[in-house]
């Protein structure tokens, strides 16, 4: 993987292309006018239901809702 080609600044800082493109997409979403902005941000929300296991049994599940950072 050793490449001598010029790397973009975000790559040099240790970001992957996915990280970079998600940051870009988020910034664009945040610049929208209102009905579209809320719509775009809700589309990106993810929900997790987490439950820890203890003594062979699932504990009470916790719902975690994540909106992407930025």
């Amino acid at each position: 993987m050793a490449s001598t080609a010029a790397v973009p600044f975000w790559r040099a800082a240790g970001m992957t292309y996915i990280t970079y493109s998600n940051i870009c997409a988020n910034l664009v979403r945040n610049c929208l006018k209102e009905p579209h902005r809320a719509e775009a941000l809700t589309r990106e929300k993810v929900h997790f239901s987490l439950s820890k296991w203890a003594d062979g049994k699932a504990q009470k599940p916790v719902l975690r809702s994540d909106a992407p950072a930025v």
Binding site: A25, V28, N30, C31, L32, K33, R37, A40
Partner: peptide, 18 residues
């Protein structure tokens, strides 16, 4: 593309702020 929006959906004041 990851995100694409028509130009008229963009709020210029948000852009300046950002």
């Amino acid at each position: 593309a990851v995100e694409a929006v028509p130009l008229d959906h963009i709020d210029p004041s948000q852009v300046q702020k950002g």
